[in-house]
């Protein structure tokens, strides 16, 4: 076989991508190995995150040197991540489905590019700017308007009580910001699919006497269902890993599970940022290693979510092409 230096150079460049990915997994794994051994499976079921006594003499627990009283549990962050992402999906799905339907069917095709570009632009706003807007606009709105009103009229549902305290930072603010950030992902995925539905399917539904809205909701939506679910899972992957915006509006809840939609929370991603300064003060390095384990957990969760999205969307592509 002839050796082609040009091709080999290009191949080497493209292999850097998988190499970077493998390096991320490998080094996070190696670095956190001691923490994985120390924390055991209880890591994901314990509630308390305590760095221990960083200034006293370290003690030996389960064969490794850790600060006295150190206890690393991330259940609070896992719950915060899953809850905020789930609520974000609940808010974002109806909004983006409605927006996509309106864009594909009700908007004149001359205005459509402008409006769909605006929807796409939501996705390019940097996360930290969403956080800034959250602090400047959304948090005061929840703290002074939405929260008290929701508690007054919906307070009989346990999860909606307590909106008049906390000032607006918390689970609801984080979920709303996340919802806004993932809406364009679902909406553009669905819009592309709706525009691909064959003309014949639309026309036969019209011929049966359906109203325009019935054509969309009963004939077209079922055809793009798989693509829609794929888009939702993709958006979920983005929401789970979102860091800055959530960090800025979530209130940074620690060591207590959220008991209402207004409780302060932390997500896995936002928590990795906040305690690193204090973790560096740990002479045994176990806190920094446990943070690496958190990063690994987050990586695995998003990897599984994105793999599911990929399977769904690649299967869903055939829907539009069916003759």
């Amino acid at each position: 076989m002839q050796i082609k230096p040009f091709r080999l150079t290009l191949l080497a460049l493209s292999l850097l991508i998988p190499a970077a990915l493998c390096a991320v997994i490998l080094f996070l794994l190696i670095f956190s190995a001691q923490a994985i051994g120390f924390n055991g499976f209880g890591f994901v079921t314990r509630i308390i995150w305590d760095l221990g006594d960083l200034y006293g003499d370290p003690v030996t627990v389960r064969g490794v040197l850790v600060p006295a009283g150190a206890n690393y549990g991330i259940l609070v962050f896992i719950v915060g991540t899953l809850l905020s992402s789930a609520i974000a999906i609940l808010i974002a799905v109806p909004l983006s489905v409605g927006a996509a339907i309106f864009l594909s069917e009700a908007v004149p095709s001359k205005i459509r590019p402008v409006l769909s570009m605006l929807v796409e632009l939501v996705a390019v706003v940097p996360s930290v700017v969403f956080g800034l807007w959250g602090i400047a606009v959304l948090v005061p709105f929840i703290g002074t308007m939405l929260g008290p009103v929701m508690s007054k009229y919906l307070g009989f549902i346990p999860f909606f009580a307590g909106g008049d305290s906390g000032g607006g930072y918390g689970l609801l603010a984080a979920s709303v910001v996340l919802a806004l950030m993932i809406t364009p992902i679902i909406a553009t995925t669905l819009l592309d699919a709706l525009l691909q539905v064959p003309k014949e399917n639309r026309e036969s539904a019209f011929a049966l006497g359906a109203t325009h809205f019935e054509v969309v909701s009963k004939a077209m939506m079922p055809m793009v269902r798989t693509t829609l679910i794929g888009g939702i899972v993709l958006a979920l992957g983005r929401a789970l890993g979102e860091t800055m915006a959530v960090l800025m509006v979530s209130g940074g809840g620690l060591n207590i599970l959220p008991h209402s939609i207004f409780s302060p929370i932390s997500t896995i991603a936002s928590f990795i940022v906040s305690p690193l300064d204090s973790a560096e003060g740990d002479p045994t390095n176990m806190a920094v290693r446990s943070l690496a384990e958190i990063a690994l957990v987050l990586f695995i969760i998003t990897l599984l979510t994105n793999a599911a999205a990929k399977l769904l969307t690649s299967g869903g592509l055939h829907v539009g092409k069916r003759k």
Binding site: L28, T243, L303, N306, A307
Partner: peptide, 14 residues
């Protein structure tokens, strides 16, 4: 694609 989906904070921590 997997690398694209990796949260940026995980890359930062790496």
């Amino acid at each position: 694609d997997v690398l694209t989906g990796t949260p940026s904070i995980v890359l930062g921590y790496f």
